[in-house]
Nucleic acid binder design. Structure first.
Lengths: 169, 169
DNA sequence: CAAATAAACTTAGATTGCTAAGCGTTTTTT
DNA sequence: AAAAAACGCTTAGCAATCTAAGTTTATTTG
């Protein structure tokens, strides 16, 4: 039987890779939290033929139907090729239809089908359930504070990305 | 020129897809924070030939060299096929070497090369820099609280995953 | 109005991650 | 000790994203 699934050999001989002031850790925690959340939600919505990649777009369309792909990409915060991929799948499974805009034929408006729209009442509860489980034991203020901190982090990083362009034009 | 990058058509006609009690939102924020962090770190370490996928494994090895692939997977929290892929790349770029364990030929121990080890002092500062920018404007307690909240979220979700197995054995 | 530029979508190709299934090696059963 | 079970790694194939490079349609310019 052996029962030594990890062997814990020399364990942390201080290579100098300490996670410092709770900082380097942040990335790790973000990644793990994101993956845990994704997995949880995915396992629930997959049964309805919806993938995580499609989930965000579906939500955006529930909020406002008929958006163009460009608009959808911006709302969801995804690059356009990603949107194309997701929409291809959604179109294939009959959740949306693409309609070439007659006024400006470059544009393609995306409309939910009855099937796509009806999923809202089915899927939203699953999302709530996951959020519920995820935040179990956290007070509303704690949760709120965490979300605000993360929002700050997002803003900080997005902004700092611009720094790379400074002095290059 | 036109200057109307979004057209903001009917905007939120309340389809009923409200993000509820700051909950459904959590997933969105987690995803965005994770992506922002990844992008930021990636853009810095890529110059040294290391991808985000490899970063975690490198850190684990800096902390303890010679782990088996199974152990590495557990430490990093990644599935084994993912580990295989990352290690293939790392082996190809000369960061690690695979050594079949003579005592148990099923196992393969992973050892850092001099190159892989020396990257530690180069890469860690980049990670700190990103963490620094990410947490700009957040007090230590705020950051700490956020990390604890996320840790709680991770634990909640991982645990709840087990629920699926209840009554199935 | 024709040519150049811009806008919106698509295609191509790479990376990272996962699940499922396969292949040797070792340990446990009988 | 042969058969069965467990281990540890690998392969195969899919999903989600991204960047770079088209294609088609509109708008601006000369």
């Amino acid at each position: 039987m052996v029962a030594e699934k990890d062997e814990k050999t020399t364990m942390s001989a201080d290579g100098g890779a300490q996670p410092p002031p709770g900082q380097t850790w942040l990335g790790q925690v973000l990644r793990d939290a994101h993956r845990a959340f994704s997995r949880a939600l995915q396992s629930r919505i997959a049964a309805h033929g919806v993938t995580m990649g499609q989930w965000s777009f579906l939500r955006a369309l529930w909020e406002e139907d008929g958006l163009t792909q460009r608009q959808l990409s911006q709302r969801v915060g995804m690059m356009e090729p990603t949107t194309v991929t997701a929409l291809n799948g959604m179109e294939r499974s009959g959740l949306v239809v693409r309609v070439r805009n007659p006024a400006d034929r470059r544009k393609v408006n995306i409309f939910l089908t009855e099937k796509g729209r009806s999923l809202q009442s089915v899927l939203i509860p699953h999302a709530h359930e996951v959020a519920q489980q995820a935040t179990d034991g956290l007070s509303a203020p704690e949760l709120q504070a965490a979300i605000e901190a993360l929002t700050r982090v997002i803003a900080n990083l997005d902004r700092s990305g611009d720094d790379f362009l400074d002095g290059f034009d």
